[in-house]
């Protein structure tokens, strides 16, 4: 095993952090969604790594389910964005602040 599995995990952590920062600094709801996808991919990588490390198939199955959830989430999320755009004519999350006092 040439590449230590820890490296994969560190890579996963870096990707996750980048995704998090992306969620925080972007104002475009679409890009925020993409950042979330990025975070999910980082998690998938960690799962596959653990699966490899444990010689088990369960991690890969989990990745499969995460993809399912991600697909569902992306579809519903994008539908929300469309509905939102239709009502407010913007997808800038800073302009969507009717929930404040």
């Amino acid at each position: 095993m040439a590449v230590p599995l820890t490296w994969y995990l560190v890579l996963s952590g870096i990707l996750f952090s980048i995704g998090t920062v992306g969620v925080l600094i972007n104002r475009n709801a679409l890009v925020i969604f993409m950042s979330i996808e990025l975070m999910l991919n980082a998690v998938n990588l960690a799962f596959v790594t653990f699966s490899r490390q444990q010689n088990s198939m369960d991690g890969q199955i989990f990745v499969f389910f995460i993809m399912t959830v991600a697909a569902a989430e992306a579809v519903v999320g994008l539908a929300i964005i469309i509905a939102l755009f239709r009502n407010k004519a913007t997808i800038n999350v800073d302009d969507i602040n009717i929930m404040k006092w």
């Binding site: 399912t68 697909a71 989430e73 579809v75 519903v76 994008l78 539908a79 469309i82």
Partner: peptide, 12 residues
């Protein structure tokens, strides 16, 4: 997935 499809249609 089915629920997501229905939800997406209803929302959008």
């Amino acid at each position: 997935l089915f629920a997501a499809i229905v939800g997406a249609i209803v929302l959008a």
